Amino acid sequence: MPRPVSRPLVAEFLGSLLLAALVIGSGIAAQRLSPDDVGLQLLENAAATGVGLYALILIFGPVSGAHFNPVVSLVDAIFGGLTWRRFALYVPAQVAGCVAGAVLANVLFDSAPVSISTTDRATWPHGASEVVATVGLLLVIFSLTRSGRAEHAPAAVGAYIGAAYWFTSSTSFANPAITVGRVFSDSFAGIAPASAPAYIAAQLVAVAVAVPLLHVLYPKPSTHAEDAVLPRTDHHPTQTGGGAR
């Protein structure tokens, strides 16, 4: 029998919601707490995101794999660790979750529930940064899962994203769902609607770069590899795929 999809979809929605609330909410807090120091604002935003992401992966990993990210789900499907049907269900849940998380973050800080961002980020350095940031994220995740070290993924992903806030000019969105979500908050972490398509395009380009690299570096998944950041509890024996996240 096929495994049920309701629990993983709920996990992906809630995880994406909390991720967007974490990223945007900590950005709003940083902007208010350190209004005259942009560097300190970025440090506060990056630190909160890194440690919060670690916790979210631990919470939701056993249920859905804790993707929260369409490009992660896409690469997982390419490697056979996620069915295409599940991928088609994950993506809307992730996008809806990130939009809901943006609304929640606005409400938590007594702002208008929806405020469209005016922060223009569409430049060539930002686009290149999104390719680099997203390739790096995919390499971190799938190098660990394809080599049987998935237990290290929560810490590694949180650490990488925290660092990528600083070494990329785009501050490492690396996620089409959260790119859409950030449009709905005119705050420190927001992105103008006109800039979002360029970011999403760069993130998809990163998939085309990362998949061949992973095939070169890890041509065959380890016999001990797992197909999620953390092993899911609802696996069906015929759907564990090729060991990719």
Rank of each mutant, 00 (worst) to 15 (best):
A133Y: 11
F188N: 02
A198Y: 09
G243N: 01
P221V: 03
R121D: 10
D76R: 00
R85E: 07
G52A: 08
S115A: 08
L19E: 09
S73W: 04
L40N: 00
S172L: 06
T233Y: 08
N69G: 02
V99H: 00
R121M: 11
E226A: 07
P237Q: 12
V107D: 03
A93F: 07
F13T: 04
I200K: 07
T171K: 09
P8C: 05
P2N: 09
L108M: 11
Y54F: 15
L108D: 09
H215V: 11
G65M: 01
S195F: 04
A194N: 01
S222C: 11
L19Y: 13
P212N: 06
S117K: 10
Y160C: 13
Y165H: 15
G241W: 14
S185Y: 01
A122G: 10
C98Y: 00
F13Y: 15
D110T: 08
Y160F: 15
V216M: 15
P92I: 03
A21E: 00
N45C: 12
P193C: 11
S195N: 13
A105V: 03
V75E: 03
L213Y: 12
V99E: 00
A150W: 03
A96W: 02
P62T: 03
P176W: 10
V103W: 06
S34Q: 06
A174T: 14
R7W: 15
I191N: 12
A244R: 10
D110A: 10
A96I: 02
V107N: 02
A93V: 08
A88R: 00
E226T: 06
H236N: 12
S147C: 03
